[in-house]
Design a protein around this nucleic acid. Structure first.
Lengths: 314, 314
DNA sequence: ACAAAAGCTCGTTTTGACCGTTTAGTCTAG
DNA sequence: CTAGACTAAACGGTCAAAACGAGCTTTTGT
């Protein structure tokens, strides 16, 4: 557990995934595994990179991982709708292991986290929402399912590629909005896009978010608005947040089902995202063209990332 | 972070970049790392030089702060107060790695999770609360710290003893109470006491909690009440929950700073816990004498687990 | 059969563990 | 407040184990 495990030698990596040391070295040199070199020229592989590589190549990692995701489950690529239904079922019943298996199988099958969030997790919660409105599910079942998913999402982090230096994204939800899941998915998506992330939590006053932007100067600020209590004050205070973001060169990305088109017309922001895939596309494009984060342009040019009318997970 | 971190020992540098102390010393002597020598001949590496070297070699040093925390100069078990202060500091600065290292160090040193929750985590948040009331800390810092701790606590689960069969504990917070941390600590404590746990989440209507008890028939139901909005209806609805617990032979354990002595006098429950250590003692005693959960006795005999007046973490 | 990928060999270089000795820092007694 | 005692950590040096690179052999997949 100590930090000493941050880097591994080729021998260690070879043992873990069960190939020869030579292969590891070759792969390192070919760039399949991101490695650093010691002063003397020895390769060092960051543990995170190993986990990412293992998923990429489909290698099973000896030990805990193998037990966690036994290949027993069906390898047939089921359509997302079916997976979402299965996940919804498992979550309603509180079967956290089944849910985890399901998510990990998909993740291991190299589905991107943004796709996973949109097509499976958000979809599952839409199913759960329908059941709930039909009185076929109780509130505690939905909430328990939410807690389960939140934990599973956290378990994915170690398998993501290492973060890029100087790429910070922070985010939160506003006062009165206690929906953790959309914000958690946004965080995961941005982390998968190699941003270092800090989740400030739910139900924070915009006043405090402004200070966070001023203190941390993130490249991205995500704001998830699933529930809105004070319409007027929100519009007012949101302007302060936008101003702070403009000031620090931060891209302000908003999302959430409480942001109706009518409300959005009264807000100034950098981008609106309906889905995690849009968020992913946006985050990736920002890395490729870092100049678009320049102070002068970040808030003036609204980006449109809303091609579909399908209700998003935010 | 203490100020005296201008210079590092070879050991510290070795920990940060993940090589042996010998290598660091060799590199120093070869001039790859510029070093100062003390009068007695010990090497001292300026932090700036380390950062420069790491950048040169491509090392990602995420855990500088964490490693810098090591020099504590003595393996003497620091008093909990000091640890709590250090943890509060790290959390306020958003240094998740430092916080994690700190918690894990204590955990590895075989401190029980309940002690850890009470004397370090809860204590740290009291410190943060004081800072906040003195305007020395912002709300987002407190909330970010809370998110960080929640994740660290989740990381501990894999290291706990397996659960005992047929020992289920579920819990939640009531509508309007969005304090996740006390409930999360309660869950961890019960899990450490070998209960299978299900956290239903925050801000749930008691009506739904009743249904959860009826559906799941847990041995324990924990209810954390940190914030109370509707005093009267709470008293009323709580009686329903107590009745449901009595019905299913569930031990109803309550806690939280919103439960004043005056309010408690109007409630019927199995036990009130001020601290996680009390909760732990209670949970353990229930396993040893499972007959005490029998339907007839569970709610009639109130247990007193409140020997101190110290404000608890609930 | 054949090309590409994986694994192996070998002489050289780097690393990390070991160990007896010295320094730094803390604690206690005068 | 200083002196001496004591412990943890750093020192220097040695040496076996491990990693390096380059070229060669075996396996795999079509």
């Amino acid at each position: 557990m100590s930090l000493a495990d941050a880097f591994l030698s080729p021998r260690q990596v070879a043992d873990v995934i069960g190939v020869s040391e030579s292969s590891i070295k070759r792969w390192c040199d070919e760039g399949l595994l991101e490695t650093i070199r010691t002063a003397g020229g020895h390769r060092k592989i960051p543990t995170g990179e190993l986990l990412h590589f293992a998923r990429e190549q489909g290698y099973q990692i000896a030990g805990v991982e193998a037990a966690l995701r036994r290949p027993a489950s069906s390898h047939l690529p089921q359509p997302y709708g079916v997976m979402a239904d299965q996940l919804a079922e498992a979550l309603l019943l509180g079967q956290s292991l089944t849910a985890r298996q399901l998510i990990f199988d998909l993740f291991w099958a190299k589905h991107s986290v943004s796709v996973l969030c949109d097509n499976v997790i958000a979809a599952a919660f839409r199913v759960i929402g329908e059941r709930w409105s039909c009185r076929q599910a109780d509130e505690y079942q939905e909430r328990r399912g939410c807690e389960i998913i939140l934990r599973i999402l956290l378990e994915l982090y170690p398998y993501l590629q290492p973060v890029l230096a100087d790429r910070l994204a922070i985010g939160a939800t506003i006062t009165g909005d206690n929906y953790k899941l959309p914000s958690a998915m946004a965080e995961l998506t941005l982390r998968a896009a190699r941003y270092q992330t800090q989740n400030l939590g739910t139900s924070l006053p915009i006043r405090s978010l402004v200070r966070a932007v001023q203190d941390l100067h993130p490249q991205i600020f995500w704001l998830s608005v699933s529930h809105l209590v004070e319409y007027e004050t929100f519009i007012e205070e949101f302007a302060m947040l936008a101003a702070a973001c403009a000031e620090s060169g931060t891209v302000l990305i908003v999302g959430g089902r409480a942001l109706t088109a009518e409300l959005r017309s009264k807000l100034v922001y950098s981008a609106y995202c309906d889905t995690m895939q849009q968020l992913n596309a946006l985050a990736t494009s920002l890395i490729r063209s870092p100049d678009s984060t320049s102070r002068s342009e970040s808030l003036t040019r609204k980006q449109s990332f809303n091609p579909t009318k399908k209700r998003g997970p935010f």
